[in-house]
């Protein structure tokens, strides 16, 4: 199975049908194990039990960036190689990425309330994730603005790549802006180095969430392919009726 074979949507669908149950099972097992380990993890001497939010916050934050890079690869696939599945992959990833980014924001804010005494702190990381979230929403708005899928795909691919180039600049400028306006006595998130007792549950959770993304993404791509079939069949029906 190479990338070229997958260019045939029917082959992709049959592969998806075979792989999805296994992926879903592995995801469920990993997330359950991760949840158990997170529940068993000791309290942090500084954050107390609140550190447990880290086990879901960090994987979501990592996925929020990972999904954008997946979309950038798909955008290259659309613009450079004209891979037929790249459009589908990019479109299916956007809402899932937006959901993970939203979760990273909200869990970060819920973590911040006990630590900072406020739900929202214009902290550099939270602010950059917020901008990332806005860009996800803009991308989804772009997808929804046009009804012709391939036209929307090319526009969205350009925007995704521009976003990928701009994200490091945005991250850098927000960091700079934040050190300029450093609020008094902010307890930094994360801390220096993680103890093994935190690291292992975190890795399990991160792997579990990554698999969750792969599973959801494949399923959403399958929906998208079916949606395009519905669309082409409806067009054929309309042209048959017109004739």
């Amino acid at each position: 199975m190479t990338l070229i074979d997958l260019a045939n949507p029917t082959k992709f669908l049959s592969l998806t049908a075979r792989v999805l149950p296994w992926l879903a099972g592995a995801t469920a097992i990993l997330l359950l194990v991760g949840f158990y380990q997170a529940a068993m993890a000791p309290d942090d001497y500084q954050h107390g039990a609140v550190v447990k939010i880290m086990f879901i916050h960090v994987p979501n934050a990592w996925l929020s960036m990972f999904v954008w890079s997946v979309m950038s690869l798909a955008a290259l696939g659309t613009l450079v190689w004209r891979h037929p599945l790249a459009d589908v992959a990019a479109k299916a990833a956007a809402p899932i990425g937006a959901a993970f980014t939203f979760l990273a924001l909200v869990t970060g804010s819920l973590w911040g309330r006990p630590m900072w005494g406020t739900y929202w702190q214009w902290d550099a990381r939270l602010t950059s994730v917020l901008i990332l979230f806005l860009m996800y929403l803009g991308l989804m708005a772009l997808w929804r603005a046009v009804d012709d899928p391939s036209r929307a795909a090319r526009a969205a691919a350009v925007l995704t790549l521009v976003g990928a180039l701009n994200l490091p600049i945005i991250k850098f400028s927000v960091d700079w802006w934040n050190t300029l306006h450093q609020p008094a006595s902010v307890l930094r998130m994360g801390g220096p180095t993680l103890d093994r007792a935190f690291l292992i549950p975190l890795l399990v959770m991160a792997l579990g969430f990554s698999l969750l993304f792969v599973t959801l993404h494949l399923a959403a791509m399958r929906n998208e392919i079916l949606r395009r079939r519905v669309r082409s069949l409806q067009m054929m029906q309309a042209s048959q009726q017109a004739a």
Binding site: L159, N166, S173
Partner: peptide, 16 residues
């Protein structure tokens, strides 16, 4: 749509 797409990208310019 233009505003929604462009404004996040102009944040660094505004900051500096």
């Amino acid at each position: 749509l233009l505003a929604v797409l462009v404004l996040p990208l102009s944040i660094p310019v505004l900051i500096f």
